[in-house]
Simulated scan of single mutants.
Amino acid sequence: MKLAILQPVLIPDLHDLSTMMTANHIVYQDTEQWSRKGRTHRALIRTPEGTDYISIPVMTADKKKSINKVRIDHARDWISPMLRSLKFNYSNSVYYDFYEPEVRADIEMGHNFEYLLDFSLFLRKRLFQFLELEISAKIDFSSGMEGYTSDPDEFAKQLGAEIYYQEHDARHYQRQGKNQSELKFTHPEYRQHFEGFEPWCCLYDLLFQYGPESFRIFEELD
């Protein structure tokens, strides 16, 4: 059995997707402490200069709490800047005008969510619908699992996983296991709306540029 031990992210990227597609069982560590260095509250997008983050502010009082208890700071206007950033950086993309109304409505729905995790799961569900993606792996959250431990090696052993993967480049905020496997992954290059190619952008980048043709990029994932 192949296990993926991941933290929830605001918007997945292609490495996240490849991990989800490779695993038989995915466990999201929603009981781990929130970290500003993680991607629970932010996602990388393409810009003329390279890349930048769109992000959601969290309540100051919640920054030392577990991921599933972190609330969105609605006292700050984060929706307008996020929408402006997407428009500024993606308005010339092939499918921006097609998906913009629905993506905008989804982001504006953030007003209705108290907890960051609930909103990120909503955005992921909507994005996967747009991209016609289905993840066949069993999905659990650490908050709902008896005997969960943050030790990846011990946790994988408990679940009987022969192989387990963790989030890429997450050593600063996710406890790293000694026995984790390296996902066989070569980041596919695809046509972006600015000159050159920047990897690790979130799936909004692919959606706005490729739309229903995104499956051609998914087929390149190892």
Score class of each variant (00 low, 15 high):
Ala23Gln: 04
Ala4Met: 07
Phe130Lys: 11
Pro101Asn: 09
Asp106Pro: 04
Lys37Gly: 04
Met21Asp: 02
Gln209Glu: 13
Gln33Lys: 12
Ser181Met: 06
Ile163Asp: 02
Gly50His: 12
His41Thr: 08
Phe185Asp: 00
Phe119Lys: 02
Phe218Tyr: 12
Trp78Ala: 07
Thr51Asn: 11
Met59Glu: 13
Ser93Lys: 09
Asp97Tyr: 10
Gln29Pro: 00
Ala43Ser: 14
Pro12Glu: 01
Thr60His: 11
Ala161Glu: 00
Phe141Ala: 01
Val9Phe: 03
Met20Asp: 02
Arg71Ala: 08
Glu154Cys: 05
Tyr210Gly: 00
Ala137Tyr: 03
Gln174Thr: 10
Leu121His: 13
Lys87Asn: 13
Asp140Arg: 06
Arg104Asp: 10
Asn112Gly: 11
Lys125Ser: 15
Ile79Glu: 00
Leu203Glu: 03
Leu86Tyr: 05
Phe122Leu: 11
Phe119Trp: 15
Phe185Val: 09
Val103Cys: 06
Glu219Asp: 13
Tyr95Asn: 12
Ser80Met: 07
Ile26Phe: 07
Phe218Val: 05
Asn179Thr: 12
Glu154Asn: 08
Met1Glu: 06
Glu167Tyr: 06
Met21Phe: 14
Glu189Arg: 12
Asp16Tyr: 14
His193Gly: 04
Tyr190Met: 02
Asn68Gly: 01
Ile107Arg: 01
Met20Asn: 06
Ile163Gly: 02
Asp97Ala: 14
Leu183Ser: 06
Ser66Asp: 01
His111Ile: 14
Pro152Ala: 05
Tyr165Val: 02
Ser120Pro: 08
Leu131Cys: 11
Ser85Glu: 06
Glu102Asp: 14
Pro152Asp: 03
Lys65Ser: 10
His193Ala: 09
Glu49Pro: 02
Val103Asn: 01
Pro101Glu: 05
Trp34Glu: 01
Ser136Cys: 07
Asp106Ser: 13
Glu134Arg: 11
Ala4Asp: 01
Glu198Tyr: 10
Pro101Cys: 11
Leu206Gln: 03
Asn89Gln: 05
His41Ser: 10
Ile5Pro: 00
Phe122Thr: 08
Phe98Pro: 00
Arg46Gly: 03
His187Pro: 04
Asp77Leu: 07
Ser150Ile: 09
Thr31Ser: 11
Leu207Arg: 04
Leu207Thr: 08
Gly147Val: 03
Leu159Glu: 09
Glu220Ser: 14
Glu162Arg: 12
Asp106Leu: 11
Met59Tyr: 09
Phe208Met: 09
Thr19Asn: 06
Asp77Trp: 05
Leu10Tyr: 10
Gly144Tyr: 05
Asn92Asp: 12
Asp16Leu: 06
Met20Tyr: 15
Met1Arg: 07
Asp118Leu: 09
Asn24Gln: 13
Val70Pro: 02
Glu182Ser: 12
Glu146His: 06
Ile54Gln: 01
Asp16Pro: 00
Arg171His: 13
Asp97Lys: 14
Ser120Asp: 05
Ala105Ser: 15
Gly38Met: 04
Phe185Tyr: 15
Tyr190Ala: 04
Ser85Gln: 10
Gln29Lys: 14
Ile45Phe: 08
Ile135Gly: 10
